[in-house]
């Protein structure tokens, strides 16, 4: 249990998708003009991450990695399908985003109206793909169980959510500030993100248990 909390906290504050890896920057910059929409996208990203990362973990474990096919038959044990992982991951992500969109539309129309336009955007959100790739890279070293993976996925999503809501709140206030003209909009957003990232760096080294 402590281990899960540790991974969860670490993925939110230290390995933050935006501030440490710059992943999902495109939608982060495009959809952070108001807190309300930012919040919607944050929820959507967290939700999709929570599904895609575990699914990709299972695919990686039982199909893609070297010798993974041994469970099916001994003769398949030597096959290494690792080169297909990019394509499988992105296909899973695109497919799940589509399914999530349909399910949400059917069962939670109000949520769908809030998220509607963002859901298709998520398929090409680097944070989603990035999380799957990091998962593949770290599995066996840092993450050992399915629970670890869930904690990582949830933490990454919440971290991203926190970042986008934070910047949206700052940008709402910044509308009233006297920013130099060439910096307005994109330029100042980058700089503020940079400063936020420096602030987040102070979390580095936090560890709940050894």
């Amino acid at each position: 249990m402590e281990n899960f909390i540790n991974i969860f906290v670490q993925s939110i504050f230290i390995d933050n998708m935006i501030f440490a890896y710059f992943l999902g920057m495109c939608s982060y910059l495009a959809v952070s003009k108001s807190v309300k929409t930012a919040n919607g996208l944050g929820i959507a990203v967290t939700f999709v991450l929570l599904i895609t990362v575990p699914v990709n973990y299972l695919l990686n474990k039982f199909i893609l990695s070297e010798g993974a096919l041994a469970w099916a038959s001994q003769s398949l044990g030597g096959i290494d399908l690792n080169f297909l992982s990019f394509i499988v991951f992105i296909a899973v992500i695109a497919w799940i985003v589509q399914v999530v969109e349909m399910v949400v539309e059917k069962f939670a129309p109000t949520l769908y109206n809030q998220l509607g336009i963002f859901l298709p955007l998520i398929a090409v959100n680097c944070a989603i793909m990035g999380a799957s790739l990091f998962m593949q890279q770290r599995v066996g070293d840092v993450y050992h169980s399915f629970g670890d993976i869930l904690a990582f996925a949830l933490g990454s999503g919440v971290g991203w959510w926190l970042a986008i809501v934070g910047i949206a709140a700052i940008r709402e206030k910044m509308k009233y500030s006297n920013v130099p003209k060439p910096l307005r909009g994109l330029g100042i957003t980058f700089m503020v993100t940079g400063l936020m990232a420096i602030a987040f760096m102070s979390f580095m080294g936090i560890k709940l248990i050894n």
């Binding site: 501030f19 440490a20 890896y21 710059f22 130099p180 003209k181 060439p182 910096l183 994109l186 330029g187 100042i188 957003t189 980058f190 700089m191 993100t193 940079g194 400063l195 936020m196 990232a197 420096i198 760096m201």
Partner: peptide, 21 residues
């Protein structure tokens, strides 16, 4: 460190947009 990349990029945008108004 990662944050400085963002700030440098902000500066590039600043210069670029000062030239191309």
């Amino acid at each position: 460190l990662p944050p400085m990349a963002l700030i440098i990029l902000g500066c590039i945008i600043w210069i670029h947009r000062s030239i191309n108004k």
